[in-house]
Write a protein that binds this DNA or RNA. Structure first.
Length: 479
RNA sequence: CGGGGCGUGGCGCAGUCCGGCUAGCGUGCUUGCAUGGGGUGCAAGAGGUCGAAGGUUCAAAUCCUUUCGCCCCGACCA
């Protein structure tokens, strides 16, 4: 009996996550270590993420393209820090067509290098700028330790790569896309995030500065859910991306890159999920409403099915994504649990009594048990259901935001810092930048500097060194 | 790469220490009948070269040697 239940989050968060991913049929382990298969239900979530993001990219002037998977190995060595950052995790192709290649090819871990090479070719004049291209792609990074969605050897993402005439424009782009991610996370995924700049230690290899959105998971660990990089002229210099400006002066471009991956699905799982399973935000759920028919005899089946299919058609006409679970071989009770595991926001039940009384039974996934269940007159469903869906969307964001805020603590000394990151959640504190101290904290506590609070006014005293500083940072253990 | 765990019907496991008859159990699967508003019940079935290779033995899931793989925990990372 208990095998049917997930381990609870409290008893084993990690196992809860792993089993949830498998049992909700989001993903499965692939034959190759560290690789995953994204199953249809998981991919449907990704497709909805893609739609929501892609619309935002288009709205901010970007276009999509596709760059190749294989990159000459020498490309990876052109930007010094980039090489060092990625060398250990590259997959290298040494043979093709049965013979050893003259130059090995790397499977892209990210595409700055190929795209930079192409931009060098395409960009001649300031009139060619800005170039605002995004691609939806898979990339490979040979990670040592993997976990479904959060860190696998191969993963799916989008990577935006832009080139600009001025530093100011490129910085503006970097921030714009960070905000796009934050907006998407908040308003589509109901995942509250803290946008901010990464420390020198944590930034992307080859970037001048890296920005991230940081989300708090249900176990209070932090997850970097999206990143945006200001690359300065580093890649432009390494790859010769140059243009003639209005004054006929040859200049290097200023470039950016930004990405969000299937990891974000992990963020959604760990932000909203409960001990019954997944809870999906209505805006991104593959099915927003699951319809479960209930009947005993064949005489009941006819009217029930007729009513429920009519309802489904009505919902679909309202652009609501639905699933009619008409399986004969399992009981309604089984279906309830099954769809709760899979996180469908709203369940609609129709039984003989509802047909008779002209009512519908609705159960909210975000409010478990009887409290989340209500009986309404069927007549008003066209209003009630969309309203409920947006209520659920808002409730999820509210709950997650509350949880996050309840687990962020301001500290002014190292003892409290340790206590917080060990037992309570995130630290928010005045921080005087220092690479070595940052490393020491990581060694002592395994907590890392997540990012800096943007636009801090005034000054404070660093919790560790007592030095004056104008920076406030978040620290937490991360995924 | 270090530490731990595990490979036995689809899945989860027992059996391994101490070798012995036809390799069990739960669940899932198939069929039938009943059931159906919170993980249905009964009955009958199908399904296994015990991760692989070699060895010891009259006899190996079990003992020995080698090997492959996966998961978890640490050092690196979106």
């Amino acid at each position: 009996m208990d095998e049917m239940k997930l381990p609870t989050r409290a008893e084993n968060y990690n196992e809860w996550y792993n089993q949830l991913v498998l049992r909700a049929e989001l993903a499965d382990y692939a034959p190759v270590r560290g690789c995953m298969v994204v199953r249809p239900y998981g991919w449907a979530i990704w497709e909805n993420i893609q739609k929501a993001l892609d619309a935002r990219f288009k709205a901010t002037g970007h276009v999509n393209a596709a760059f190749p998977l294989l990159i000459p190995q020498s490309f990876m060595t052109k930007e010094k820090e980039h090489v060092e950052g990625f060398a250990p995790e590259l997959a290298v192709v040494t043979h093709g067509g049965g013979v050893e290649l003259e130059e090995p090819l790397v499977v892209r871990p990210t595409s700055e290098t190929v795209i930079g090479t192409m931009y060098a070719k395409w960009i001649q004049s300031y009139r060619d700028l800005p170039v605002l291209i995004n691609q939806w792609a898979n990339v490979v990074r040979w990670e040592m330790r993997t976990k479904l969605f959060l860190r696998t050897l191969e993963f799916y993402w989008q990577e935006g790569h832009t080139a600009h005439a001025t530093q100011a424009e490129a910085v503006e782009e970097t921030e714009r896309m960070l905000n796009v991610y934050a907006d998407f996370a908040k308003n589509e995924a109901a995942v509250p995030v803290l946008p901010g700049q990464k420390s020198e230690t944590e930034k992307f290899a080859g970037a001048v500065s890296t920005y991230s959105i940081e989300a708090m998971m249900g176990d209070t660990k932090a997850l970097q859910a999206g990143t945006s990089h200001f690359l300065g002229q580093n890649f432009a210099k390494a790859f010769d991306i140059k243009f003639l400006d209005e004054n006929n002066t040859l200049q290097h471009c200023w470039t950016t890159s930004w990405g969000l991956s299937t990891r974000f699905i992990g963020a959604m799982i760990m932000t909203h999920g409960d001990d019954q399973g997944l809870i999906l935000p209505p805006n991104l759920a593959p099915y927003q409403v699951v319809l479960v028919p209930i009947y005993r005899k064949d005489t009941e089946k006819g009217p029930v099915m007729e009513t429920i299919t009519r309802l489904q058609a009505g919902l679909e006409a309202l652009q609501i994504r639905t699933k009619l679970d008409d399986r004969e071989e399992v009981t309604p009770g089984f279906k309830f649990n099954d769809w709760e595991m899979r996180g469908v926001p709203l369940r609609l039940e129709i039984g003989p009594k509802d047909v008779e009384k002209g009512s519908i039974a609705l159960a909210r996934r975000d409010i478990p048990g009887r409290d989340g269940k209500q009986f309404l007159p069927a007549a008003g469903y066209e209003q009630a259901i969309p309203e409920l869906l947006s209520e659920i969307q808002a409730a999820l964001l509210g709950k997650a935001t509350q949880f996050r805020d309840d687990h962020i603590f301001e500290v002014d000394n190292y003892a409290d810092f340790k206590d917080v990151v060990e037992n309570k959640g995130w630290v928010k504190a005045w921080w005087h930048d220092d690479r070595q101290n940052e490393a020491k904290i990581k060694e002592d506590t395994r907590a890392t500097l997540r990012n800096y609070v943007p636009n801090v006014e005034g000054e404070g005293v660093c919790f560790l060194t007592g030095k004056k500083t104008n920076k406030i940072a978040y620290f937490a253990k991360g995924y």
